[in-house]
């Protein structure tokens, strides 16, 4: 029942979006989840994503851009397959968050908001992710990793490189 022909999304996601716009009292409420889920699938919020979502919600592209640029998890450039987000906010900082960040930097050879040449990993320093009591913590995509040490980070990264994921 999607009104969109030629969707840029997978059939599953398109179907999910068709449903998503119906569950709220107003369609526009679906905007932020849609941007996030589209980013999960496409890798970032591309121009095409903006335009299709605007169409689905009957919004101007500009409105979508205004909203999109407000939220820090949404990005308009591709990231690595595994986006490593190291928290350095106070609780993590006190327990070695910067050490973890620096370790990731040297291990991967990239800096904040950069991506490895093979496109596997990207790195971001982020604000508090709600894992303060298990600090230092980071997220790889949506997976939490807690009580980190440099050695543990090595293990986790190796797990992702092997394609096994970690945990």
């Amino acid at each position: 029942m999607s009104t969109i022909t030629n969707t840029i999304f997978s059939p599953e996601l398109a179907e999910r979006f068709d449903k998503l716009v119906t569950i709220y009292p107003v369609r526009r409420s679906a905007l932020i989840p849609m941007l996030l889920y589209a980013q999960d699938e496409v890798g970032y919020v591309s121009e095409a994503v903006i335009q299709e979502i605007a169409k689905r919600l009957d919004l101007f592209d500009l409105e979508v851009r205004s909203v999109l640029s407000y939220y820090s998890m949404l990005r308009t450039k591709p990231a690595g397959k595994y986006n490593i987000q190291v928290c350095t906010n106070i609780s993590c900082m006190l327990r070695g968050g910067y050490e973890i960040l620096d370790h990731c930097k040297s291990k991967l050879g990239i800096g904040h908001k950069q991506t490895t040449a093979d496109g596997q990993f990207s790195l971001e320093e982020v604000e508090c992710i709600g894992a303060c009591c298990w600090a230092p913590a980071m997220q790889v995509n949506y997976d939490f990793h807690e009580d980190l040490t440099p050695a543990k980070v090595d293990e986790i990264l190796a797990g992702y490189s092997d394609g096994k994921g970690a945990k």
């Binding site: 101007f60 592209d61 500009l62 409105e63 851009r65 205004s66 640029s69 407000y70």
Partner: peptide, 21 residues
Amino acid sequence: FALGVQNRNSSSIIAPNVPAH
């Protein structure tokens, strides 16, 4: 509706509806 606000905090800017790119 040709003008909007983009980004947040002190990076907030007024932006027109056709982005540079």
